[in-house]
């Protein structure tokens, strides 16, 4: 039962770990948690004038699958518009990372984090 190198790579070398200035009006921040395991995840996006996500960062305190899911999610949203990013589904992450049933909530967490970050960004724009 081989698993793809890509999965392993996201486990071992998560991309985009870190944070962006929270008070920056072009940065949206989402902090979410999975009650199943008590993991917490912070995901941030930086949106340019054209409405394109030009950078994304995350930090996750949790299991490897949650880290891999958030790593993959940040990779995916970079270069997408805010609208495109809103269409990301946790099932895409499940497929890409081959997550087993007990770890599906990790992908849900990543999806929730992107939604929360987008909502925060939009709220800042309205303000």
């Amino acid at each position: 039962m081989a698993y793809s190198d890509k999965v392993l790579d996201h486990y071992n070398n998560p991309r985009n770990v870190g944070s962006l200035p929270k008070s920056d009006p072009t940065v949206g921040t989402g902090v979410v948690g999975a009650p199943e395991c008590g993991d917490v995840m912070k995901l941030q996006i930086k949106v340019n004038a054209a409405g394109v996500i030009e950078d994304a960062r995350f930090k996750t305190f949790g299991c490897g699958s949650a880290i891999a899911s958030s790593s993959l999610a940040t990779e995916w949203v970079k270069g997408k518009t805010v609208e495109e990013a809103a269409n990301l589904r946790n099932t895409d992450i499940v497929q890409e990372l081959n997550l087993p049933p007990i770890k599906i909530h990790c992908s849900v967490l990543a999806e929730d984090a992107i939604r929360a970050a987008l909502a925060d960004y939009k709220a800042k724009q309205k303000a």
């Binding site: 902090v31 979410v32 948690g33 009650p35 917490v40 912070k42 930090k59 305190f61």
Partner: peptide, 18 residues
């Protein structure tokens, strides 16, 4: 019946982890 943790709790937990 699912539990959604309140945002303050998550932020608090996150900051302590940091």
């Amino acid at each position: 019946e699912r539990y959604q943790p309140p945002a303050e709790l998550l932020v608090h937990v996150f900051e302590l982890n940091e």
